[in-house]
């Protein structure tokens, strides 16, 4: 019994490892590409300006509430680093935005880091990341 379970576990891990190397489809972008597209190749630093509010554990990956804020930012974007395509949403704040803050609900394909990058008023880029665990329920129903 133990042996069987261990073997099953090893098989599962191997399968996951292989899955990680499956070539992405032509449409998909990598996290690096998505980041470069947003920053124009500039480096984003973790300077503490970006604040992410998201659950540590999401009850369902279909609908995960996320709030982002970065005081003085011109734009804030959310990446789901573990989704087939990492781009999620980009908020561009206009002159009548009272705060550089926004909330939405997003889809996460599994447990992963949510990466938030802000384009600051001076043209520099700041970022922050938070892991969100996506649980697999006992009862699909």
């Amino acid at each position: 019994m133990n042996l069987t379970r261990r073997q099953a576990l090893i098989t599962a891990i191997s399968a996951a490892a292989v899955a990680g190397f499956v070539p992405r489809s032509a449409m998909a972008t990598t996290m690096e590409e998505a980041m470069a597209a947003f920053t124009g190749g500039a480096e984003a630093t973790e300077g503490g300006a970006v604040i992410i509010t998201a659950p540590e554990i999401a009850e369902n990956g279909n609908t995960v509430p996320v709030e982002v804020a970065a005081e003085g930012a011109a734009r804030i974007t959310i990446f789901a680093s573990g989704n087939p395509n990492p781009e999620v949403v980009t908020f561009a704040f206009g002159p009548l935005a009272a705060a550089q803050r926004a909330s939405t609900r997003i889809r996460l394909a599994g447990t992963q880091d949510v990466i938030v990058v802000a384009e600051m008023a001076d043209g520099s880029y700041q970022m922050a990341a938070q892991e969100v665990k996506v649980t697999i329920g006992g009862c699909g129903g």
């Binding site: 609908t63 649980t135 006992g138 129903g141």
Partner: peptide
Amino acid sequence: NMLRADHLSQGQINGFPVYRLKWA
């Protein structure tokens, strides 16, 4: 108790019809 990651409820249906995040 937990059934894997799911917190088992009493299976009450007083809340129906229900908006399930899973069903969107």
